[in-house]
Amino acid sequence: MGNQKLYKGSLQTIILKLLESNDKMYGYEITQKVKELTKGELNITEGALYPALHKLEADGLLDVEVAKVGNRLRKYYKLTENGTKETANKLLEMQEFLKTMQHLVNPKFSLE
């Protein structure tokens, strides 16, 4: 498993990107989807996921929808209009960051 600390600052971007491609998702589903997409390399803990989701909700980037599943209620998250715009910005930021890191760690392959 890779160094989880390296992913820490990218959690919000990961959530936003997942919601962009999946319309609406619930907390547990997000953790499992990340595990599946990264083949177990990245494991988002519940302790980190929910505060991040609540922060995004409070910032108006996510909206909530509640649905009844069996005997319980499930809280689905989906992107708001602002959230969709912010996702594009965050992904752009992430690409810039990766490019910069590439310049730093592997200068030979990043000459433009």
């Binding site: 907390g27 547990y28 499992q32 929910y50 509640v66 599943v69 319980r72 209620l73 499930r74 809280k75």
Partner: peptide, 17 residues
């Protein structure tokens, strides 16, 4: 109450999986 529902749903789903 939304927080309680969210925690219950998470635990039940995780328990079932």
């Amino acid at each position: 109450p939304e927080d309680l529902n969210e925690l219950i749903d998470h635990l039940v789903t995780d328990f079932e999986h």
